[in-house]
């Protein structure tokens, strides 16, 4: 029923931008006339604590206001979560797991016991080289975009640029877009 709605769950740690990634994807989809939802799951999180954020995208209005339990895609922004959080919960084998790791897909598979498709990207390396900081959300969005093509590439890129220009200034905005594009080009899907 809810599969008319495309659902993504992001796992990250507070401060890595998982919530922003989920929102950026949704906002870019809005600009393409889609119906969306994006929301974080808050505890009393502080920097470094595990957080979840969700995006729903649909051609039709979304009335559902319950959490995402069976996502199409799970994105793990921080590889240290693989050991401590059941990241594949509710993800069936037709689903997609996208992980920020410097390890192999095989090793991720063994660690989480997921038999569906796993896509790996070393987003931390990209973020460190492009931004100088290990904030990996935009690089992860590059991998998500390549793997799912869920919103128009240019729309996502221009929305991202606009968002970060407003919040972080032109320089960091461009660096974030570079990280996004580089991950998009480097990820093997």
């Amino acid at each position: 029923m809810s599969k008319e709605i495309f659902e993504i769950r992001f796992h990250g740690r507070g401060g890595q931008g998982a919530k922003t990634a989920a929102a950026l994807l949704a906002e870019a989809a809005i600009e393409q006339g889609k119906y969306v939802q994006s929301f974080p799951e808050y505890g009393a999180e502080r920097q470094g604590a595990p957080v979840k954020a969700f995006t729903r995208i649909s051609e039709k209005p979304i009335y559902l206001h319950s959490g995402v339990t069976n996502p199409n895609v799970v994105v793990v922004v921080d590889q240290t979560l693989l050991k401590s959080i059941p990241v594949t919960e509710g993800l069936d084998e037709t689903g997609l797991l996208i992980v920020n790791t410097n390890d192999t897909a095989e090793s991720v598979k063994n660690m989480v016991g997921f038999n569906g498709k796993i896509i790996i990207i070393d987003a931390t390396k990209i973020a460190l080289e492009e931004l100088g900081r290990a904030i990996t959300n935009t690089a992860m969005l590059g991998a998500v975009e390549k793997a799912t093509n869920i919103v128009d590439f240019e729309a996502l890129k221009s929305h991202m640029l606009k968002h970060f220009e407003y919040h972080l200034g032109k320089d960091l905005a461009e660096k974030n877009v570079n990280a996004f594009e580089r991950a998009y080009n480097e990820v093997k899907v």
């Binding site: 119906y35 969306v36 808050y42 209005p61 206001h65």
Partner: peptide, 10 residues
């Protein structure tokens, strides 16, 4: 709270 206040929607 949160469900609406913090959720991005169209």
């Amino acid at each position: 709270g949160f469900i609406t206040s913090h959720s991005v929607e169209t």
